[in-house]
């Protein structure tokens, strides 16, 4: 069984089929790319996969241990609890909060006390808070952001914000990550640093990653397989070399400035 199985997924907005009858599967520990021209439905697909939108039809199955879970029936926060997390095309950090607090919020499920524990600081409160603090710092060390722990997210340089967003998604304990244009707006050095960061965390934390990206050199360099969407439909899938030479893909991108 594949880790993620998308079956005949459709999402309509009025008369528009932003995602149209898409079926695909992602295997454990893969790094796959999702590409396509602007408006092809890539972000919409992520939004359906993470529960922001419900599918108009079709379903999404996720393998957790030996259980098969229908993600498309769950609200976003429960999908995250299953070990599936994402980043956003237009960064959505908790801007006014520190890097540390951004990560702590992702680790909120680790708290072992309820409302009364919080209000009166009884039970596991102190132990639990100390543990979360320690885990958050350890996690930030692992993703090389610990020196910036006290910095407000909005004051980070752009590249670091993107990096923090990935780190925050990981801090939820996710094993499957959806990254929506992680290199958008980055200069070549930042893109390079990000590429090695993604590779590094993937190996270190045994992740499965699906990433949307317009930067073709990045996609071709790190993705093992690539899916191509156009007008909501899956028009091709295969290795980077196969995709580069696929006539339908070339046609879809015709007129775009993207170099394949």
């Amino acid at each position: 069984m594949s880790l993620l199985q998308i079956e005949k997924l459709t999402r309509n907005f009025g008369g528009l089929s932003a995602v149209s009858n898409v079926s695909l599967a992602v295997e454990e520990h893969e790094l796959v790319g999702l590409i396509g021209p602007n408006g092809a439905g890539k972000t919409t697909l992520f939004n359906v996969l993470t529960g922001v939108y419900t599918p108009s039809s079709g379903r999404v199955m996720f393998q957790k241990g030996d259980k098969s879970i229908e993600l498309s029936k769950l609200p976003p926060y429960k999908i995250t609890r299953m070990g599936v997390a994402r980043t956003f095309q237009n960064i959505r950090l908790f801007k006014e909060l520190s890097v540390l607090d951004n990560v702590k919020i992702a680790m909120n499920h680790e708290a072992r006390y309820g409302l009364f524990g919080a209000l009166f600081r009884i039970g596991q409160y102190f132990k639990s808070e100390a543990l979360i603090e320690e885990k958050a710092h350890a996690f930030l060390k692992e993703v090389n952001l610990d020196e910036l722990a006290e910095t407000k997210a909005k004051n980070l340089p752009y590249g670091k914000q993107r990096q923090l967003e990935i780190a925050r998604a990981l801090a939820t304990g996710a094993k499957l990550l959806f990254l929506d244009e992680p290199a958008a707006g980055m200069n070549p050095q930042e893109t390079h640093a990000l590429t090695s960061f993604i590779k590094e965390i993937k190996e270190k934390m045994n992740l499965t990653i699906v990433l949307i990206e317009h930067d073709m050199s990045l996609v071709m360099e790190i993705c093992e397989r690539i899916f191509v969407l156009d007008y909501g439909k899956l028009i091709a899938s295969g290795t980077p070399d196969e995709i580069k030479n696929n006539p339908r893909v070339i046609e879809a991108y015709l007129g775009d400035e993207v170099e394949l």
Binding site: Y77, T80, F94, L97, D101, I105, A106, L115, A118, E129
Partner: peptide, 23 residues
Amino acid sequence: SAIGRACISIKEDEIAAEAMGIN
């Protein structure tokens, strides 16, 4: 507390909070 942090994350960005596993 963790509850307060969850609430603050909602004020900051409700969609992101939900994506971080916050109910």
